[in-house]
Amino acid sequence: MGGRKYLFSWDMIGDIGLGRPNLGPLMRLETYRLMEFTFRDVIERRHGTEEADRIFHEAGLLAGKEFFDHVLQGASDFPEFVRKTQQALAELSIGILRIEKADLAAGSLVLTVSEDLDCSGLPDIGDQICTYDEGFLAGLLGAFTGKTFRVKEVDCWCTGGRTCRFTADVVA
């Protein structure tokens, strides 16, 4: 697409070893959430809640595909995919992934993410807020299976849960 300034590529993650020889690759979670929720605030203010959720979902979907391509490549079967994903999400402090049910033939999964990067510890606001995670998981599953998934968060820290629970179903 011509004229795009921020077309995503993995190169944009940068050479962190070169760029941050003293501070390294880690930062505090508050910083991540500060950026995420200020983005949300401004996007919601300008485009409304539904559109803000759609944008975060779409960004998550893109991130999930890119993450699969660059971090999880080589998973040959579902157990290996799960294992690699669990390991990567834990190592990168994104969350603790657990599978509750997986029926790949029917294209249906139930999974949870505990200590989730986006929401764990937030106030109970009565709404599931992990739309970015929904997109991210849909991106991962889609990249692994080659199918399109609809991922829906059914329990969230922000609705009083202690772990975020997602259903994932093939839609195409």
Binding site: T112, S114, G160, G161, R162, T163
Partner: peptide, 19 residues
């Protein structure tokens, strides 16, 4: 709420254990 969340967390762990 808290109690519900804790019980759902227990259920999630047990379901994962089953899987």
């Amino acid at each position: 709420g808290r109690v519900s969340g804790a019980l759902k967390g227990l259920q999630a762990n047990l379901r994962h254990l089953t899987w």
